[in-house]
Each structure stands twice: as C-alpha cells, then as structure tokens.
Amino acid sequence: MKKIVVASAREGAGKTTAVIGIGRKVSGKIGYMKPFGDRIYYHKKRLWDYDSVAVAKTLGISEAPEKLSIGFEHSKLMYMFDREGIAKKVRELFEEISTGKDMVFIEGSKDMNYGASVNLDSFSVAHYLQSAMLMIFSGKEEDIFDDIVRCKELAEMKGVKIVGAIINKVRDVNEWKEIHVQRVEKEGIHVLGILPEIKELSTITAEFVADQLPAKVLAGEKGLHNEIENIFIGAMSVSAAIKNPLFNKKKKLILTSGDRTDMVLTALREDTSCIVLTNNIIPPARIREMADEKGIPLLLTPWDTYTSAKKLENIKPWISEKNEKKMRAVETAFESLDTSWIMNM
C-alpha cells in the first residue's frame, strides 16, 4: 500500500484538485483522509470537511465524510490531544482508512504553518505516518521559490521526504519549463508537473453563492446551477448601470438592495446568472414570479450591501463532485501529468 501526504505552502494552492486529478489516474482502491479539516460543513449536528466530500464522492471512498478528519478548530485539538495523543490519533485514523486500500492520500492542512501549535501541520502528519510528501505550489514565482526553500527545511527538520512538487495554476507553462524549473530542481525539489490554471475551476454557481454567503433562495431555483464570472454592484441608478460595460457582460451576479425594484427588473431582462438582494428586503411578488420564469435565482441576505459585497469577495471557488464540467476539466488537466513516480515510491 502506498501513501502520500499532499501539502501546500499556502491556502488554495490546489491540494484537493491534485488528489482528485491524480486519484483518477491511478489504478487500485484509494483511501483518503484530511486530519485537520478546514472548509467545514455543519449539518444536523454533524461536521465534516467540504473537500473530503468532494474527494470521497469522486474517488469512490466509502467512509462517512465526518470520519475523515480529526478536528476543525485549534481549540478542539488542544482540548482533546497532547503531542503524543495527536500522533496516536493520526496513526489510528490512518490504520482505519488504509485497510484494504492500494493507495492513501493524506491531505495536509491549509498552509505550511496551519496546525503547528496543535501538532497537526502537514509536516508533522507526514512524520507521524512516515509518509513521503507531494507539495503543491502556486502563486507568484518569487513566493513559490521562497516557499520551496522553507518547505524543504521543514521536511528535513521533521525527517520526511518530499517526492516532488506540482507547480499549479501557472499562467505560462512554457516559461516555467524553460526558465524556472531548473531553479526549483537546484533547490533539490523534483518538479513533477507544471499545470496551467483550470479556468473552469474558478467559476462559481448561484447555488454555491447561496451556500457560502449564506443567502436564502427566494425564487428562480431552476437557475441555481448558473455559472458566475462577473460581479456587478447595482448601487447606482439604472440609467448609469446600463452604461457600465460590466453590467452588459454575460454570466454576471448583480448585488443590490431588495427594494431596488428598478435595478432587479433590469437585471432580470439581461443575461444575469443570479441576483443577490441585500438588507433582508423581499421584492414584490411579480418580480419573484419573473425570476421563476426566467430561471434567475434571487438570493436574499440579511446584511447591507457593503457587508454582502465584502462577503461575496471572500467566496473562493471550491471543487465539487456535483459539477461534472469541473471534474472533466480536472481530468483533462492531469492527463499529461506523469505519475510514474508513484510506482517508484
């Protein structure tokens, strides 16, 4: 049985995507765990990691998602485990998960430091399990170089081996191959692949916005899978809005106060993916009916427009097993990735 800790230096580098991409390429039964859960989903008094669900569903993992993480918050881990206790718990979880599996992916915490104070950072986990690590890097070149050096130091300190790195979300793959790879290799990290940004992954849907804000769906449910690529804040008059090029773009989310009937009506006549209504103001029935007819979701938030805009800005797209288009895009992106190194582990 093979095992690997998939870690990153910074949040949102693409660990989950890498697990799914590689997991779909390799044969045999796959296991997965994410000791320090992060993107939480709390429902019916149960708590699990959103990424775990996506991975479990995509890779055919049978364990219940809440069994794949040990904790989600420092205070719980601090309350329940000391250094020995956490190591023991990680190993126990691994034992459970790995039984009958050919390969187990252990997803690290959100960045290279996260969890260090409760001994559950990615490097510690790799150390407890004596597992090799696959690093996923993304961002500006200079940040990546810094991260590589620091990660290597951390790995050495913990006595774990980094099998290599995937440089993810790269704008110019050729430039990386021709100029930067050598520098990384020189630091002693083998570059296993350079992957371009998967555009499809950066889109969010109206349903995701409703989930993340969170907002109540008032109408237009049949358009919940509408994709959003642009956000427009309708704080001006309609005549000023329609002159704005952003307003005329497709796949847009319009954010406006619930009492801006004029703005909502205009948005409903445009190619709009969804409308977020702020201040808990429910628009008149005819508008809700029109949204139903057009399949444009109306999402209601209790917050004012400024707060809602801030919250909207913070929404980062997550990968979801429900979005087949995204899944296909991941498969395509990882097709070219050489995974022969797994055989050699």
């Binding site: 709390y42 708590l47 918050e73 205070s75 719980k76």
Partner: peptide
C-alpha cells in the same frame, strides 16, 4: 452560522463549537 440547537452530548457540543467559531 452562529447558532446551534439541541446538542445532546459532548461530541455534539464540540462539533457545534468548531462550526460556530469557524463560521
């Protein structure tokens, strides 16, 4: 996401605490 109701044991309290603080 700052409210959790009807928690019946320590585990449910721990889950809820983490969810509330994270949210």
């Amino acid at each position: 996401g700052g409210v959790a109701l009807d928690l019946e044991d320590a585990e449910e309290v721990m889950n809820a605490y983490q969810a509330i603080v994270k949210n």
